[in-house]
């Protein structure tokens, strides 16, 4: 019974994810996507990765879900696609397989002799380790992100010049 909480969180997140794909209105789908991100972040809280959980909320829900919702609201609802039963059945089967593998994995983890929920590092030691050994890689990663910003601006500029 130790693993009732992760199972509840996984089921909650899966329901939110399924709703986000199958809901009748795109905006409701975007809202349930945000709830899915929130459920994932609660899962990170449970695993003891608090820093990651909080930034999951701040980045995914605060920025990415907002962008998706913005796009959906501005562009408007598209055509509804036709429901097809075979696809639905395959999707449910795939989802059930993934859920079963999660449950098996968690129960295996808890059946180990000494499962520890706390990670064996702290944020400070992790930052120290990363900066000392992989500082340059981190720097290049951040540069890649800022080059994505350049790319976004360039795309926006081209679009504006085409419509102007």
């Amino acid at each position: 019974m130790d693993f009732i909480v992760p199972i509840i969180l996984i089921i909650f997140s899966s329901i939110a994810a399924i709703l986000s794909l199958e809901s009748r209105s795109l905006v409701y789908g975007a809202v349930s996507l945000a709830i899915f991100f929130l459920g994932l972040s609660l899962f990170f809280f449970y695993l003891g990765l608090t820093y990651l959980a909080i930034f999951q909320v701040a980045v995914y829900v605060g920025a990415i879900a907002v962008l998706i919702m913005f796009t959906v609201m501005v562009v408007g609802e598209g055509q509804r696609r036709k429901r097809s039963v075979p696809l639905l059945a395959m999707g449910l089967l795939g989802g059930a397989i993934i859920l079963a593998s999660f449950i098996m994995g968690i129960s295996y983890f808890f059946s180990l002799p000494n499962p520890s929920m706390q990670p064996s590092f702290t944020l400070v030691s992790l930052a120290r380790y990363v900066m000392d050994n992989y500082g340059l890689i981190l720097f290049i990663l951040a540069l890649l992100l800022t080059s994505a910003a350049y790319g976004a601006v360039a795309l926006a500029r081209r679009e504006v010049e085409e419509t102007a």
């Binding site: 701040a58 980045v59 962008l67 913005f70 944020l123 400070v124 120290r128 981190l138 800022t146």
Partner: peptide
């Protein structure tokens, strides 16, 4: 100002790294 929303997303992620660095400020 849609480009600034994208920029906000990127700065949000970069600030994650910066906060990790900032918390260990006294050891650098």
């Amino acid at each position: 100002y849609f480009a600034f929303l994208l920029l906000f997303l990127i700065f949000d992620v970069v600030s994650m790294f910066l906060y990790a660095w900032g918390a260990s400020y006294y050891s650098f």
